[in-house]
Design a binder for these strands. Structure first.
Lengths: 128, 128
DNA sequence: GCAACTGTATCACTCATATAATACGGTCAA
DNA sequence: TTGACCGTATTATATGAGTGATACAGTTGC
């Protein structure tokens, strides 16, 4: 069963998108593997204190993306092969690195300064 | 006059917030300095193809933050001293670096991998 | 078979963001 | 002083995100 421990929606971005991202990151990092079951819409929404429709939206987008199998009546499962995992991982890392490198550049940070910042903040980060 | 060259709202975040961030980044990087005039609400909204009210919202928030002086009838100006600039710069860089490190950690990247990513993407970034 | 789950669908509602159209009064330079 | 520009304010409308409630049909395990 996919875990949502440490999932805190404080991002400002839409909730359904944060759920999507949480699962994509789990796939990229290997925490989520092929065949893993997703929590049901009702259970997960109750756990997170949000609306079932919001979870539904995330899950159905994951199905369109080909990462999840939804069968009416049965639980939803993650469907992965090696190529898919590698693709998700590469796309995720690339987009995150690109946007955040761009952000630091625009605030006037140098390349060496950015590397230094990454090294400094790496240990300070605690929450999952 | 503060420049909005290269300002492209494609972030997903609210437009007024992107304007705020653009100006904060300009201050942090030294591109925007004390006494600089802001484009009028009407001019900037026409340039960006957005609504004057949206620009107004950004400008009035900048005033509440103490970075801009708005006088009814006259143009709006940036008001800065060395301490303010340093504060804006530190807060901005810190939050962006923290976001970057948190994102990469959650996608299963190692510290060395993150440094490598920053170095690799630093040159590839072109658009301002 | 039946009960307890599951996914799916629909409707009405709130809220923030953004647009659109005006209007009013202050500032500033020719 | 006057006209062009400025900041500010108001009202109405549209859209997307999220909630809340409810309903229906499919599956699974006992």
């Amino acid at each position: 069963m996919i875990s949502f421990e440490g999932f805190k929606p404080e991002d400002g971005s839409p909730l359904y998108y944060q759920i999507l991202r949480h699962i994509r990151r789990g796939i990229a990092s290997g925490v989520i593997v092929d065949g893993d079951a997703l929590p049901s819409r009702r259970v997960l929404s109750a756990t997170l204190g949000i609306n079932p429709n919001t979870v539904q939206r995330a899950y159905s987008e994951l199905e369109e993306e080909g990462l999840v199998s939804n069968r009416s009546g049965a639980k939803s499962y993650v469907v992965l092969n090696a190529d898919t995992v590698e693709r998700v991982r590469r796309e995720l890392i690339e987009s995150e690195a690109r946007t955040l490198v761009g952000s630091l550049k625009k605030t006037g940070v140098t390349k060496d300064g950015a590397v230094e910042l990454v090294e400094r903040f790496w240990e300070e980060e605690e929450e999952l």
